[in-house]
Amino acid sequence: MKTRKVTDYALLTTLALILSYVESQVPAFFAVPGMKLGLTNLVVMVALYRMGDRDAVTVNLIRICLSALLFGNGFSLAYSLSGGLLSGFTMIALKRTEKFSIIGVSIAGGLSHNTGQILASMVLLGTWRVAAYFIALWASGIAAGLAIGVLSGEIVRRLPQSVISGGKP
């Protein structure tokens, strides 16, 4: 692995961790558990569009494991993993079709993240009653994905090629 790539990974993972932490400090901001903006997805989007599919998944996985170790527990790891993996693969699949802009990809990402978490909570809590949160989390996933999509579009456009170059010189 090139030194350049290692430093890119380190930079993005650190940034994602910080954003994870910032977001974990405002849990009571919304009434429904799991409803959040998903700031870390900014970093995943940058990795996805500047580096590549595999790099985005790698950065996200490292971020999830580290933030569970630092700020969370086994349960939060299960929620983050199911949300992160589902949204990661959904975004990669949508990006590969080349039919959608970064905003569409991000909307699908936000939504699939929440879907993954609802599925995880159904398994962990063993109940369908979670479905009461479903419509709120579905709507918030779309809204958050839209906001993050617009933001990350700007970041990917404005970030100098020299900062995150995807291993290219």
Partner: peptide, 19 residues
């Protein structure tokens, strides 16, 4: 792409309501 984005948005909203 904007059109596909909007289609995606509408489709997802519809699927959400159905689910």
């Amino acid at each position: 792409r904007l059109r596909s984005d909007l289609l995606l948005l509408g489709g997802l909203a519809a699927v959400g309501l159905a689910l």
